[in-house]
């Protein structure tokens, strides 16, 4: 097993990382997804594990060991993601056990993980609020060697944070429906007349999220259990050169129910200069059709907006 407990030395171009599957996929689907990632996707890092709802943990846990073995055999660095919202003692125990026993660096999803990971090498997920370099430096001093910044941040903030925390690797959420909110209440269950405690795991019926439309029938959001994600798909494939220039070390791709190997290949082809950002965007629209792309947050606009390279702003949802 490669020693993935230490940060690797820096080099110039960013690499690709795959974030955890945010949706409830059944165990075999989840396993086969990662097997294919291991065999075919040009990603350097894979962060996996349930982050949204502790009730889902048992679906994928039986397959995790095989998945990790396959990923490591393919040379991927593996990190394990912790829960984004921890309110129950059972959930706290789960996070503590991960921190204590994991052979792989844990990605903190909430403040409890920050507490139990203090002093050992770990990473920070995009749902921990890192909005400035002072916060990044504080987390770094406690053992965080890599931070995936919140999708909400504009480029000016990202650049400023990287400049102010030079000892830390930064990762940017560049592809996938954006995590926008999490609640104690399960709106997904509620939409089917159920409650969180009696949910019958109906979120498994929507492996790419359950769309929410406005009363004017505009696509708006998507439900993923207790999490609300954007209807649009974050797409920073057209901004990879800027991300690289400001010192971003890794480009995070968040799994959707589409060909993620092709998504990774498109990003790699842009990073290596084989295609340009425009062609990358065109490829993403083919690989993941029917979902508008957006990059508004990065350009300090509404997150649902798509800002074209020509700077002609257009709403991602209106296109």
């Amino acid at each position: 097993m490669p020693d993935s407990s230490k940060p690797e030395p820096s080099s110039s171009a960013p690499t690709l990382s795959l974030g955890p599957v945010p949706y409830l996929w059944d165990g075999p689907k989840w396993r086969d997804f990662y097997f294919r990632i291991a065999d075919e996707a040009p990603v350097s890092h894979v962060t996996l594990g349930e982050i949204v709802c502790s009730k889902r943990l048992h679906f994928t846990e039986p397959f995790a060991a095989d998945v990790i073995e396959r990923l490591e055999a393919a040379g991927k660095r593996v990190h394990l993601a912790s829960l984004a919202m921890v309110t129950l003692e059972r959930e706290s125990r789960h996070v503590r056990a991960m921190a204590a026993d994991s052979l792989w660096p844990v990605e903190a999803g909430d403040l409890s993980a920050l507490h139990v990971l203090n002093g050992r090498p770990h990473t920070i997920g995009p749902l921990v609020n890192v909005y400035n370099a002072a916060t990044a430096r504080l987390l770094s001093s406690r053992g965080a060697f890599s931070i995936c910044l919140p999708p909400e941040l504009p480029m000016a903030s990202v650049a400023e944070i990287i400049k102010g925390a030079p000892d830390t690797d930064f990762e940017i959420f560049a592809f996938g429906r954006m995590p926008l909110a999490i609640s104690a209440r399960c709106a997904h269950a509620r939409s089917k007349g159920l409650t969180k405690d009696n949910c019958q795991f109906i979120c498994a019926n929507d492996p790419d999220g359950l769309p929410v439309h406005t009363l004017a029938r505009q696509p708006f959001l998507a439900l993923n259990g207790v999490q609300t994600v954007s209807f649009t798909c974050q797409a920073l494939i057209g901004e990879l050169d800027e991300l690289s220039a400001i010192g971003v070390r890794r480009i995070r791709l968040s799994p959707q129910d589409c060909d993620m190997v092709a998504v990774a290949q498109a990003h790699q082809d842009v990073l290596s200069g084989q295609i340009d950002g425009e062609e990358g965007l065109a490829r993403l629209r083919t690989i993941y059709p029917g979902v508008p792309l957006s990059n508004g947050f990065f350009h300090d606009e509404a997150g649902a907006a798509f800002v074209a390279r020509t700077r002609n702003a257009a709403s991602g949802l209106a296109s």
Binding site: M178, L180, I182, S183, G296, G303
Partner: peptide
């Protein structure tokens, strides 16, 4: 707040302005 406070960017998704920022 229906959503966990400090962890919601629904407002900035629509308007560019959020509680956190």
């Amino acid at each position: 707040c229906v959503m966990a406070e400090g962890r919601c960017s629904l407002s900035s998704y629509v308007t560019g302005k959020s509680p956190n920022m």
